[in-house]
């Protein structure tokens, strides 16, 4: 299956036909079933490429869906179920990595990005206020530029 994707440059079509949860697996209690679906969407099908167990028809995904439901029936909270699955399969199984030192860059990027950007913008505003804008174009160049720009009223100068 990997080959297929490798063969497709940039195709957004990314994942194979999925069959996902079957009626046999589903719990009778709709509330519990809903929770099971929510948890399933956050767990990775380990043998698939970037698919959650909720979307995958691999037998391993089926096993995991059953485990999730068993734990829920036994009265586990959502977190306990996630912890349990993680303890058996490692962090790889979580589609949303934990907040941890190792994942600092991952989770920090949106915040750091915004702050850096804001800082840079603030710095530029501060350093440039006061300095008069310089027009480096000579008169002849300016003339040619406005000719190229066409009508003039749109040139915004």
């Amino acid at each position: 299956m990997k080959r297929i994707f490798a063969a497709l440059a940039f195709l957004v079509l990314a994942i194979f036909a999925a069959h996902a949860v079957t009626p046999d697996e589903m719990l009778d209690d709709p509330v519990l079933e809903q929770r099971a679906r929510e948890i399933s969407a956050k767990l990775r099908c380990l043998v698939c490429q970037n698919q959650s167990i909720d979307d995958s028809d691999a037998s391993l995904a089926h096993d995991l869906r059953v485990i999730v439901r068993e734990r829920l029936v036994d009265g586990d909270t959502n977190e306990e179920v996630m912890d349990y699955v993680e303890s058996r399969y490692g962090e790889f199984v979580l589609l949303q990595p934990r907040f941890s030192a190792r994942n600092l860059l991952l989770w920090g990027t949106p915040v750091i990005g915004l702050l850096l950007g804001l800082g840079a913008i603030a710095f530029l505003f501060r350093s440039r206020s006061g300095a008069a804008p310089v027009n480096r174009l000579s008169a002849e160049e300016q003339d040619r530029l406005s000719k190229i720009l066409g009508e003039g009223e749109e040139s915004g100068r």
Partner: peptide, 17 residues
């Protein structure tokens, strides 16, 4: 080590941004 970054991560970061 292998970790996964999937839809829940992007939903949690991209959308609020």
């Amino acid at each position: 080590e292998k970790i996964s970054v999937g839809a829940p991560y992007f939903d949690a970061t991209f959308v609020p941004l």
